[in-house]
């Protein structure tokens, strides 16, 4: 896919978007010496607050992290921080977005980030929080919101994976999915999973440095894509085992699937946001 940016969907808005950096609040952000950088810091700190707290809450639903407390207690202690994080992300995002509107309007990574933000809010507020509050029990509304938020998340992930120049960023999501499984798995499954992952990394390195020359891009591309698919199969396969292996955690496979999505959606948002600069 070549590009799925906002200009593609709303071409008539270009003249208006081009003015946003020169009028408040965009001009307020760009004006002072440290203005833009300061709001970016606010954006990153908000991301840390929402990311850190949703990871902890969802890890609890996966049977890792603060396991000595019930999921409802973890949720009760983190919900205010999550609200602060989301408000911070939206407010600072609007401000730096207004100052940088022309670039974002033309950026596929920004479209992915907006989809991840929408999905992240739905999956956190409509799914993970109610499920954690109910100690892992999944009611009808979380199921409905999971269908909606999950579909938006997967569509954003698909766009990230298939859009030229940003598709490499999907390695962040794959890496996060791989790393989440280390604290979530136990015993022999954990070591087997790590050994398999290490073998894949070594095999890819040998293949792309010694079997194929590192500057032979025509052959490297399909080989790297094949390894990406192998990583995904290994990670998803191990993830599926953890869904159905009950070790006394609250909730069943659907609860855990929701928790995985609840973490990865914020990683997708952060990765797409960073990739705006690289596109």
């Amino acid at each position: 896919m070549s590009s799925m940016n906002l200009e593609h969907f709303f071409p008539q808005a270009k003249a208006w978007v081009d003015t946003l950096g020169d009028i408040p609040p965009g001009s307020w952000v760009k004006g002072p010496k440290f203005g833009y950088a300061s709001w970016e810091v606010g954006h990153i700190i908000s991301l840390i607050i929402i990311g850190g707290t949703t990871i902890l809450m969802n890890l609890r639903l996966l049977g890792a992290g603060v396991t000595q407390e019930k999921p409802a207690e973890v949720y009760r202690n983190l919900r205010v921080l999550q609200n602060i994080g989301v408000i911070g992300i939206v407010v600072t995002g609007l401000l730096i977005g207004a100052a940088n509107a022309t670039k974002l309007y033309d950026s596929s990574a920004f479209t992915v980030k907006m989809m991840a933000l929408l999905a992240g809010i739905i999956l956190t507020y409509g799914v993970s929080r109610p499920v954690a509050a109910a100690n892992g029990a999944v009611g009808l509304m979380p199921k409905i919101w999971f269908a909606i938020g999950g579909a938006i998340f997967l569509t954003g992930l698909w766009m990230f994976t298939t859009t030229d120049l940003i598709d490499v960023g999907v390695y962040h999501v794959i890496t996060a999915a791989a790393l989440i499984l280390i604290p979530v798995t136990r015993g022999r499954l954990r070591w087997g999973y790590i050994a398999g992952m290490a073998a894949l990394i070594v095999a890819q390195f040998v293949h792309t440095h010694f079997v194929i020359k590192p500057d032979d891009y025509d052959h490297l591309n399909p080989v790297n894509k094949t390894y990406t698919a192998l990583y995904a199969v290994w990670i998803v396969g191990t993830g599926l085992i953890t869904l159905f292996r009950n070790r006394g955690e609250e909730g069943g496979p659907l609860t855990k699937l929701m928790a995985y999505f609840g973490i990865l959606v914020w990683v997708l948002g952060a990765a797409a946001g960073r990739w705006i600069a690289f596109q």
Binding site: I44, L47, I48, I49, G51, G52, T53, I55, L56, H172, A176, W266, V267, A270, A271, R274
Partner: peptide, 10 residues
């Protein structure tokens, strides 16, 4: 940046 989310968040 992404790992910072988990590091600083925790």
């Amino acid at each position: 940046l992404i790992v910072l989310m988990l590091f600083a968040g925790t």
